[in-house]
Design a binder for these strands. Structure first.
Length: 345
DNA sequence: AACACGGCCAACCGCCTGAAT
DNA sequence: CATTCAGGCGGTTGGCCGTGT
């Protein structure tokens, strides 16, 4: 025989907890501690099963739970951890003090996942969505002549061809590096060892990519101490028509865009050489920036001004601003991944 | 004011693993 | 060794609430 049943399951209450039930549970745990969820409800005078009590305590009543909106740093941490751990919410929660797995799971499904999809990023693989590449290809063909936005309100970050190449390179790198393989053991959907040998990007030189990564202008880098939440004064300043008053720690989106465009036009990086030597690539493959042009024109948040696409990038800004930051960092991250992999050796 | 709709999130469901018997 | 269950986890649901019409 096995263990005896923990409790009589008939007649137990389900559904939302009342304040009275919460108080009973808190009082009991404060006096006796928790651990034996099997006997706890009976001892605490609750008509609930132990499982329900454990969940209520862990997700809501625990005193060290942090409430309120997720910070920019927390959000970036979730995205980065999810790219490595997948849907291991408890493992992700273990690295975010005060946040529960349930809360992170809900936040992912209601906010982050949708935003990644809107950005054309597969929230499962964190790679560009292959199902959008054909659409992106059509839209990017008129990239130079007309800065139109696509159905998501943004320009493609990179060309379809480059996305495909990056995706295949990343997938080969992920399968080579055990630290980047999901814990559930599932392989990357792009896994194909032969792609590495066939990929023309392999002919890029290490120095070219290193130069590219180092010189891409930064915007709101992760963990940058200068990227701090808006104070009320700063928010007020952002609403003022005189944009010269904006604190220097904030990066004006137009400045960032101009910097990036200047960089791309700079002779320091010989794009033409790459284009000339790679028959699969064209000049369109190196246009990254105009997706910013339609950002924040409709937002009424203090982080944005409503005219002329004036948005500011800092550590605690609007969802649009977070998209810019994430796009930029994702772009740099992808190239760093390519460089870090040993496929050039 | 009434209704419809969609977003959010607390709580439940079902499965898996390891421990107890 | 087989059986049974507690605890833990991820997926899903249903009700509440805000917003739009």
């Amino acid at each position: 025989m096995g263990r005896s049943p923990c409790c009589e399951k008939n007649g137990l209450k389900k559904g939302p907890w009342t304040a009275e039930e919460d108080q009973k549970l808190v009082d009991y745990i404060q006096k006796n501690g928790y651990g034996n969820w099997r006997t706890l409800p009976k001892n605490a005078g609750l008509q609930r099963c132990g499982k329900s009590c454990r969940l209520r305590w862990a997700n809501y009543l625990r005193p060290d739970i942090k409430r309120g909106r997720f910070s920019f740093e927390e959000e970036e941490t979730i995205i980065q951890l999810h790219s490595v751990l997948g849907n291991k919410w408890s493992a992700i929660a273990a690295r975010l003090p005060g946040r529960t797995d349930n809360e992170i799971k809900n936040y992912w499904n209601t906010h982050i996942r949708k935003r990644l999809l809107r950005m054309g990023i597969d929230p499962v693989t964190h790679n560009p969505r292959l199902d959008l590449l054909d659409i992106s290809s059509i839209l990017s063909s008129s990239f130079h002549s007309s800065p139109h936005t696509n159905m998501f309100g943004v320009q493609p970050l990179v060309s379809p061809e480059l996305l495909r190449l990056a995706a295949s390179l990343l997938s080969s790198h992920h399968t080579q590096n055990p630290n980047l393989v999901h814990q559930n053991g599932q392989g990357n959907q792009f896994e194909n060892p032969h792609q590495v040998q066939e990929n023309p990007l392999l002919q890029f030189q290490n120095q070219d990519l290193q130069t590219l990564i180092q010189e891409i202008p930064s915007c709101a880098p992760l963990n940058n101490p200068n990227c701090v939440p808006f104070t009320s004064d700063q928010s007020a300043q952002l609403m003022e028509p005189n944009v010269d008053q904006v604190p220097s720690s904030l990066c004006h989106v137009n400045d960032w865009q101009n910097n990036l465009e200047n960089f791309l036009a700079n002779d320091n990086y010989d794009f033409q050489h790459i284009i000339d030597t790679q028959s699969n690539l064209t000049s369109n493959d190196f246009n990254f920036t105009s997706h910013l042009s339609n950002i924040s024109t409709t937002s009424s948040s203090p982080a944005s001004l409503n005219s002329n696409s004036t948005s500011y990038i800092n550590g605690n800004s609007t969802e649009d601003d977070r998209e810019i930051s994430y796009c930029s960092n994702l772009f740099k991250y992808e190239y760093q991944e390519i460089l870090d992999s040993n496929v050039f050796m």
